[in-house]
Amino acid sequence: MPLFSSRTSRRPRIAPALDDEGLARVLGRLGKRGGSGRAPDVALVSAALEEAGHDWDRRGHRASVLAEATADTGLSAAWLGREPQNADALLFHSWTALARGLRDGRLEDAGQVVEQCHRAAELRPEDPLPWVVLLGVARVERFTQNDVNAVWREATGRDRWHREAYLQMLAYLSPEEGGSSAAVLDFVDVVRTRIPANAPCAAVEVTAAVRQYQGLLATGGVRAMTAGQLWDGGQVAAALDQAATLWAKPGFFQHAAAQADLNVLAYALCAAGRAADAHHVFQALQGVVTPWPWNVDGPALQRFEQHQAKAERGRQGGLGGA
């Protein structure tokens, strides 16, 4: 599927499927019927995951989006009830439980989710996704670091650069979820030089910087007033420079959530006072908006449009200031 067309930008809209047209069609059909547990809906989700085959990146994107879209319906339970020994049914049921758990701050039955992930892993040993879900469970249940490291090795041993695995680990280590800023920095330092520039997880360092920046703003006071200094020098500035140069180039990124990472980059460039540099990133996005990171200080679409307009003015005037 084409990534980052050069067509004129379209009106900003929230698009959970991003540029996955097949997934967008499934979401549209589920939305019309309310995502029930009826056989046709189960078949839609099953086919979407099966179609991705061993493209673990694409499978992970589809599973994550569909799990969030149907988390409050009976679809995953109906599927598992029909096919209790189906690896995809087990995976999807556990992922929908995780989606609810991350939203609500607790899992209804953590033991069941863990058991289902292990059973799915037994049925399809090569699949990293059950282990990725377990990384998410570790966030909610606050697994010990040793236990998390063991799950991490299982996930990345099957798909070394799996984007969702890196994001789940980053969140687990974050101070907002019981970790620390030092733990995040250590993680980023370890992976920084190993990750290929166009890997699915390439945005982990910029994502960590955006989370840190937003955390500083949330504290208020002097720390909030000086939050912009985060972008001024050192490794963070170098990472942002590289991303601004490479990520929006046609064909550079091929992973399923590339447009989500470009949203993070556009936000970071605007936060760093480099609105003009963000212009080509907004162009590449073609109006596809992800709720985070834009929604921390207002409606995501509104904030996206405001920054997009500022980027356009900055380009026309040759100004990159905030």
Rank of each mutant, 00 (worst) to 15 (best):
T193S: 14
R315T: 12
W152G: 00
W56L: 03
G157E: 06
G233R: 14
F253N: 15
P291C: 07
L269T: 09
A284F: 04
T290I: 01
L123Y: 09
R62T: 12
W161I: 13
S64P: 03
A52Q: 01
H118Q: 15
R313K: 11
A309W: 07
E312K: 05
G273T: 07
S94T: 10
R315Q: 13
A238P: 00
W161T: 12
S174C: 05
V281Y: 01
G179H: 07
T73G: 03
A284E: 00
R58C: 02
H93L: 06
A284M: 04
R153S: 00
I14P: 05
A224S: 15
A43I: 03
A275F: 05
P12Q: 00
A99I: 11
E115I: 08
E51M: 05
G215V: 09
A237G: 03
H162Q: 08
K32R: 15
P128A: 06
G34M: 06
A67E: 04
P12M: 09
F304M: 02
R29V: 14
E21S: 13
P291Y: 06
N198E: 14
G251C: 03
R11S: 12
G31I: 10
A17S: 06
F92A: 11
A278Y: 11
F187H: 02
L173G: 00
F304A: 08
D20K: 04
A322G: 11
A97H: 13
S181Y: 10
A203Y: 09
M225T: 15
T226H: 02
Q85S: 11
V264W: 05
A150N: 00
Q116D: 14
H162N: 13
A78R: 00
L18S: 08
S36L: 04
D297K: 07
D277C: 05
A182Q: 12
K310R: 12
A150G: 04
G221D: 13
R211V: 10
F92W: 14
D109L: 06
L217V: 14
M1R: 06
A278G: 08
Y172W: 13
T245N: 09
P130W: 04
A24I: 02
V42G: 00
A275T: 13
L240C: 11
G298P: 05
L49H: 04
Q308T: 05
A248W: 10
A197H: 06
S5C: 03
F253C: 15
E126I: 13
Q306Y: 10
A47S: 12
G31S: 09
D297R: 08
F282C: 01
L134T: 07
L90V: 15
R274Q: 13
G221L: 11
E51G: 02
E205A: 15
W79F: 01
L27Q: 05
R163K: 11
A171N: 10
A199W: 07
A300V: 12
A311P: 01
L217H: 14
P125A: 14
G178A: 03
Q316I: 12
V236C: 05
L75S: 01
H162Y: 08
V281P: 04
A238M: 09
R7P: 10
T73R: 04
C117L: 06
G60E: 07
P196R: 03
A197Y: 02
S6W: 04
A238T: 12
P291H: 12
R139F: 02
P250L: 05
E108S: 12
A258Q: 08
A258G: 15
G314Y: 07
T219Q: 14
P16L: 01
L30Q: 06
M1W: 08
G34S: 08
D104L: 12
A268Q: 00
V206A: 02
R58Y: 05
G37A: 00
